[in-house]
């Protein structure tokens, strides 16, 4: 039994201690917006926030988490797709197949929270999630637009 704090809710989960956070989120909590891509923290489809830090949840065992750590998934990022990034993603028609986009948005949200005015170099350094449809350039545009909107 473990207690985790996810999207503002404390939940009890009964899993083996080596179960990755990703599979707790998907199979125990039932939130499927966070995706499985590789299981080895390479592709970033599973990106969530742990205390505001973009974290690849597929290789993070639940035993390493404490109740005090606040986990946010794509479902908890905003009500009604209202985060500046989500709006910018829609305005720029970013997603193609869309599978990696939850992870991309979560990685971007951590980036602009940390670096409100990111340069191209900042974005390229921090945004290492894989997109096979090749939406990278539109992601970059959307991040800059959202960052600028968030700064006001």
């Amino acid at each position: 039994m473990a207690k985790i704090n996810i999207n503002g809710r404390v939940v009890d989960v009964t899993v083996e201690p080596d179960t990755p956070l990703l599979w707790v989120i998907r199979e125990q909590i039932g939130l499927t917006g966070t995706k499985y891509g590789c299981g080895v923290a390479q592709c970033g489809s599973c990106t969530v926030h742990v205390d505001g830090v973009a974290t690849r949840s597929c290789a993070l065992p639940i035993s390493a988490m404490t109740e005090a750590q606040k986990i946010v998934t794509i479902e908890g990022l905003s009500p009604n797709s209202s985060h500046a990034l989500q709006k910018a993603w829609l305005a720029n028609d970013v997603p193609q197949c869309g599978y990696c986009q939850s992870g991309q948005i979560m990685a971007a949200a951590a980036l602009i929270a940390q670096t409100p005015n990111p340069t191209d170099a900042d974005i390229e350094r921090e945004m290492t999630n894989i997109c096979r449809c090749g939406t990278y350039n539109r992601i970059k545009t959307a991040i800059k637009q959202a960052a600028s909107a968030a700064r006001g």
Partner: peptide, 13 residues
């Protein structure tokens, strides 16, 4: 596109 930015889109996985 909305379901692809808020995690709601259901893929077969």
């Amino acid at each position: 596109q909305d379901g692809k930015v808020n995690g709601a889109q259901v893929y077969s996985i």
